[in-house]
Design a protein around this nucleic acid. Sequence first.
DNA 1: CTGTTTACGATTTTT
DNA 2: TCGTAAACAG
Length: 796
Amino acid sequence: MAYHIDYAQELNSAQLEAVTYGNGPLLVIAGAGSGKTRTLVYRLARLIEDGVDPAEILLLTFTRKAAAEMTRRAGHLLAGSVLGGASDQFGVHPGSHTQMAVAPINIRGGTFHAFAYSILRRFRPSGYEGTLSLMDAPDIISTLQLCKDRLELGRGDRAFPKNQTIEGLLSKARNKETNVESIMRFEAPHLMPYVEDLTRLAEEYSRFKHEHCLLDYDDLLFELEHLFIDNPDVLELQRSVYRHIMVDEYQDTNRVQARLAHMLAGEGGNILAVGDDAQSIYAFRGADVQNILDFPKLFAGAKIITLEENYRSVQPVLDLTNAILASAREAYPKNLFTRQPGGSLPRLIKPLSDMSQANLACQVINELLGRYKPGEIAVLFRSGFHSFQLEVQLSKQGIAFRKYGGLRYSDAAHIKDLLSMARLLLNPLDLPSFTRVAELFKGVGPKTARKIYAAAAGEVPGDLEKACAKFPGLLAVLKKIAELRENLLQPRQTLEVLLETYLPLLKAHYVDDYPYREQALEELLRIAEPYEELDLLISDLSLEDPDNPDEAQADNAITLSTVHSAKGLEWGAVLVIDLVQNRFPSRHAVLRDDDYEEERRLLYVACTRAKSELFLFAPATLYHREHGGYEPVNLSPFIAELPPNTYESWVETYGGELRKQLLKSDPFAPQPCSRGRSFGLDVYGGRPDFSVETTARAEKKTFRELSDFPNRRTALKPTRPLEERDSLAEDCPDNHSETSSTGLSPLSLQGKSGYCLHKIFGRGKIIQHLPPDKYRVNFPGFGLKVIMAAFLTLED
DNA sequence: CTGTTTACGATTTTT
DNA sequence: TCGTAAACAG
């Protein structure tokens, strides 16, 4: 067959193999920046060139954006040869788009959740009577509160777990497919007294959802699986429609998702899974890296192809990112290399405070704007709120930015108000939405709302009027909604009518800033424009944040993003801020080793987003309103562990200038050795590191290391053998728990095994025996500790 | 039952 | 010091 695209020319051999692989299951393990997307896109193009109808391809990605980007690129690729055009996501219907001169590539793509919803809305799962509503996070919280009240749980008990905590535990239990108890035993042992309460609560919550036709995120996946099991013909139909399944970011799927993929593809079916175990960052919501490892078991006869050449980043960036993984608890057999020439060393910038960090970041961004388009610059951070100060600074300086992650567009109160009206229109049983609408009226609280809801749900005529006697405005709104329910308009028109009824309420509720909110609602109308089904608009808003047409062309903005939301994207220059203990890694992820390792991979993901320039920011102090001042913080252990020759160090002087540290400090000498928890024994990890290290010893060591390190083009191995790193760690002056140590020979010389276990610190390497009864042990992430032998168990 | 006051604790990532 | 959840007052 003659192809229009010269695949062999445009792909490396591993990519080519993946792209041209025939039928059957295929797993592509793709290191960061190794052309994973490129491979998917070319495979799409190849399938189409081979005569596969694009409508037979299902592309399951992490975001709608990713799916759109892939089909767009495949379209481009094919445009010059066969066909080109737009793609069809689950939500956006192409009806309103301009007609393409050529046939559109009609590939279905989106998240598992959105795909599940698109099926469930057509084939209602058993146990629900009525139109289904999707719950968002606040809906889940308020529903839990309601169930709690019903069961009279936790009344007056301040120690009773918070709704958010409960939500996390219940969801994790479902995603990991165990019971609440085992999740709690593992992750929240201090809440064990409440196991029974929470188990009952989980049951009540589940019952409530069925009663009111509500689905939470987890239900989408499990209900789809049930649907497929209960109605094999529905599954069969999907299978016959989608002959080719592609799953991106497979390392972030959980077990149901893997089973769904298996069901859809069928035994020996055409499934392509792409992933990178080193980039697994969603274990917190039940993603299971084991899925990748088990792929060959689930899909017998699966072919596995590994992509190792990195096309994204320059060598210095790659060296640093490889070094991040080098000290991972589990070594990943990754061997990333690049042919990209040159590139400058990543910079570690140490501002005096988080405030000046915002300033310095702006300075760097301004400078970068001379060399990059705004769209090629991104600032990444661990948690949504970490960027607040920077956002203020950027606004002050007139630098446009877009922010991803953190609060969503549809989280804004006024948007939720209007959408609640729309949801209520579709599903009269949707109690969370009903309550939200009712509470817009003065004098209506949760209790009154429930009363009116009962009156509205019951079919006794006149009841509703009676219940609403004191609230004529509410009755009018409910009537309007019922009226719209009877004769459905286009989504946009429906929202327009609803907005009309909502506007007076908006003005009453948000006296000071309603003009801004009204503007945002106009925006919502524009977003709604292309939709033909109201429920798809609503589900898209909660499942995949559809593009705002107003923002779409805002290419003159830099990107601010949480690392999670930055997954799969890349920029010319990347800044990572707040690389300090308790922020990155997050302080909640420090206690359990699995969480801690996930934070490390998260940093890996962040840094591998950079194509040519990488800036790491680690402020020496953080401003705490609570304490009304700046408090010293320690450098992130992940950064402290990096070999000093993988980056260049810059310090902010007290004059506010940046000064390059000519001599890289020994990361094991001045840096904190604890993970930033206080167990009483490790007080403050260490002082902020303002000063240039100028001791002769540091100088000598740095020089030696540099000369040891030729300009390599290949992958980075750990720069120093573990033994040496451990012995260097002895220099750490920061061990408050350490007692004096004189003239004792290392344990290893006595021929004993080198590892032991500690109840709190976990597994560590024994460095020295300190007779009579102490050991000096290096615990990964905690540094050197001297521990009584009684508290250690030797590992065999 | 609602809206206001008081007291307590401080929790992150996404669908 | 801020936001949330229980206690109180109307």
